[in-house]
Structure formats: C-alpha cells, structure tokens
C-alpha cells in the first residue's frame, strides 16, 4: 500500500521537494514565460509588453502559416505510415525469431537509435546526393538496361540523368523514416512478443492464410502496441527541426523551422511563442486521441 504523505512528513519533504522544485523552476516557469509571450507584443528591439492580444494567434492561422502546419501534419503522417509499413513485418519477424537471433536483431535495431541524430542525418546526405550510392546504383542499372536494349536491337536509353533526391520533400520524408524507424519497431515488437500465439495457430489451423491471420487476428490483438508506435513516431516527426533543415529545400520547411526563424533571425518572439504553443496543442491532441482510441479498444476487448 502507498503511504499517505502525513505518515512520514520529513521523508516526504526530502524526497518530493528537489524534483518538484526543479520541474517548476526549470520547466514549468520557462514554458509559462513562452505562454505569456504568446499574448505579448514587440514594443522595441528587446522589449515585449504583455498586452493580452490574440494577434499572434490570428497571424498564425493566416493561409501562409496554416499551410506550413498542414504540410507538417501531412509529412509526419506519411512518415508514420511508411514506418508502420516497414516496421510491422520487421517487428513480426523479430518477435518470432529464435531467442538468440532475437537478441541480436533487437540490438541492431536499437543501435542507430542510440547514435547521434545529427550524425545519422549527415550520413544520409552522402547516400542520397547526386553523386551518392542510390544514384550510382540506379545509373548502373540504367546502363545495363541500356546495353541490353542495344543487344536485342532496340534504341539505347541515352545518358543517365541523376535523380535529385536531396533538398526536397522526398528527402525530408526519407530522412524522417530513417530516423524514426526504431521508434516504431520497438513498441510493435513488444506488443507482438506478448501476444497469445495459440490464437494465431488456431486461425492457421482453421484454414485462414497467413495474410488473413495477420490482418484479422494479429493486428487487432496488437492494436495497443500499434497505436503507441504510431504516437511515438508521429510526435517527434511533427516537431522535427534538424531533418527538414538539413535535407529539405526552400519549400520543405516544417513548423519547427518557422519557430526557429522567429526566435533566432526574425526576432519576433511573441509570434514564435504562439507557434510553439500551437505545435504543443497539436501534440496534446494526438496524445488525447491515442488515449481515447486505446480506452475504446480496451472496453471492446
């Protein structure tokens, strides 16, 4: 049983005060200041008045910025779907591998997750650029196909034009998938690993194919794991700063890049603060939606 704090007041104070004080002073106060700024106005180069205006929020929902919000949501959504499509079979394979292989595969999936995000993004640049591996491989295929065409008496394909894989929206999505894939695989794996396998065996014995078993038995059983995988992929992807900054072009800015610009270059802190809080509200809506779906599925189950 938990103790009430009154039973051991001194111990409670010694244990509770440091973390709560830290949280209030170095997390809630900074957040509160930003929140207050979002209702403020720039009155001079470094002075901000708290006027209680909603002008910053009004500006944030102008078409220009609304479009960036919408785009961030779409990019994060596509990233999450791709991570799910790639991550689900991988998690399934790991969950049903032999114990030894399982440990190694989990380690291999985890290791990039521990590696520095900036380094991983930088590594991706070398692979995707015009003189990178993807283009080298495609060029090789192209030239071979071209040679084959001449061989059977058709017109050769002509010079290979390297694909522009960097500094556009595709690059941002590839980068986000690359960075967030482990986030998706791990919760999926733990959900699939805990699942009651006899239900799958029953479904297979009764004549359902593997695909049908997976869609109609495994997916509903692993739904909570899928939901949490979606959430912890979607949230960081939505607020991603580094990936669109390094891999994106001028038109692939996401909301975090706009926020950064307000604080570091445009020096419009109140507007940046309003954008930050809108991003935070979107995050909270995503969390609430996930909790709602989870509760609903538990009630049904």
């Amino acid at each position: 049983m938990e103790q009430t704090w009154k039973q051991a007041k001194a111990a409670f104070a010694a244990i509770a005060v440091p973390p709560i004080a830290w949280l209030v002073l170095f997390f809630l106060v900074p957040m509160g200041v930003i929140w207050a700024y979002s209702f403020g106005e720039n009155t001079g180069p470094i002075t901000i008045d708290f006027t209680g205006t909603f002008a910053n929020y009004a500006r944030a929902v102008e078409p220009l910025y609304l479009q960036i919000f919408l785009k961030s949501l779409i990019v994060a959504g596509i990233t999450t779907v791709l991570c799910l499509i790639i991550g689900f079979p991988v998690a399934l394979a790991i969950a049903f591998a032999s114990p030894r292989a399982k440990a190694w595969l989990l380690l291999l999936i985890m290791l990039p997750f521990w590696t520095n995000l900036l380094i991983r993004t930088f590594a991706l640049i070398a692979v995707l650029r015009e003189q990178g591996y993807v283009n080298f491989a495609l060029e090789w295929l192209w030239n071979n196909a071209s040679g084959f065409m001449t061989l059977i008496g058709l017109q050769p394909l002509g010079e290979y034009e390297p694909l522009t894989l960097l500094y556009n929206n595709t690059a941002v999505i590839i980068g986000l998938v690359y960075v967030h894939l482990p986030f998706m695989v791990l919760p999926l794996y733990s959900a699939l690993d805990r699942m009651d396998r006899s239900l799958m065996e029953a479904s297979l014995d009764l004549g359902a194919g593997h695909l049908r078993t997976i869609l109609l038995v495994v997916v509903p059983l692993a739904a909570p794991g899928i939901a949490s995988g979606i959430l912890i992929t979607f949230i960081p992807a939505l607020g991603a700063y580094l990936t669109p900054d390094l891999l994106g072009g001028t038109d692939s800015q996401m909301i975090a890049n706009v926020i950064e610009r307000q604080f570091k270059r445009a020096n419009d802190w109140p507007f940046g603060a309003a954008l930050s809080f809108l991003l935070m509200y979107l995050t909270f809506i995503a969390i609430a939606a996930q909790a709602f779906i989870q509760r609903k599925s538990e009630r049904r189950g």
Partner: peptide
Amino acid sequence: VPEICLGVA
C-alpha cells in the same frame, strides 16, 4: 513536449 518548444523556452 516537442524539443523545439523546450528549446525556445
């Protein structure tokens, strides 16, 4: 909370 929000805070 998104990293960027904590960063600007």
